[in-house]
């Protein structure tokens, strides 16, 4: 009796689906419930950027363009040395090339780049997919706060280092 069993199973499966709610996400009407760390768009915390060019060099698709110049900060104390500082002129990410690999964010030593879950930035013209510094800075406002740690996870290194330092100062 294996002959008709498959036929009935086919009907049963489809009927069960028919009676259940569909799994469709009604996107434009209902905003999607995105998981944390969704790779939507890369935001730039301009103040943290030192124009070290690490991200631009590591980018596999060469979609980051950085231009900067040096500015000299005069010495604050008498006889001190003038200090130089890099100032960003350009920081462009071309999202028509970007493959959302997250390498630039991983490689940034100063946490200047962050993932934002915003994904709806389609454009009519491909040229407009190149986001400049100001636009990338604006995305920063949409970056969510860092996730809470998993229960039982060891605390962040920065935090434990700071706590150890505080403890040492208190002991003095």
């Amino acid at each position: 009796m294996t002959y008709g069993k498959g036929l009935l199973q086919g009907l049963a499966v489809t009927w069960r689906n028919l009676t259940r709610r569909s799994v469709t996400a009604h996107y434009p009407d209902v905003q999607p419930d995105l998981p944390p760390r969704s790779r939507g768009v890369i935001a730039l915390q301009e103040e943290n950027c030192t124009s070290c060019m690490l991200c631009a060099r590591e980018c596999p698709s060469w979609c980051i363009t950085i231009d900067s110049h040096k500015e000299t900060i005069p010495a604050t104390t008498e006889g001190g040395r003038d200090r130089s500082q890099n100032v960003l002129d350009t920081f462009d990410i071309d999202y028509s090339l970007c493959m959302y690999c997250s390498i630039c964010i991983e490689v940034c030593p100063f946490d200047a780049l962050h993932w934002s879950p915003e994904f709806a930035y389609a454009e009519g013209d491909i040229v407009d997919l190149t986001h400049d510094m100001n636009r990338l800075r604006e995305w920063m406002w949409t970056v969510p706060a860092p996730q809470a740690l998993d229960p039982g996870a060891e605390p962040a290194k920065e935090l434990s280092a700071w706590q150890a330092k505080q403890a040492a100062e208190d002991a003095e």
Binding site: T14, W15, N17, S22, V23, T24, H26
Partner: peptide, 13 residues
């Protein structure tokens, strides 16, 4: 509509 729901979709909306 029926085909969509049988495939856990909603079809035209």
């Amino acid at each position: 509509k029926a085909m969509a729901h049988m495939q856990s979709r909603v079809g035209p909306m």
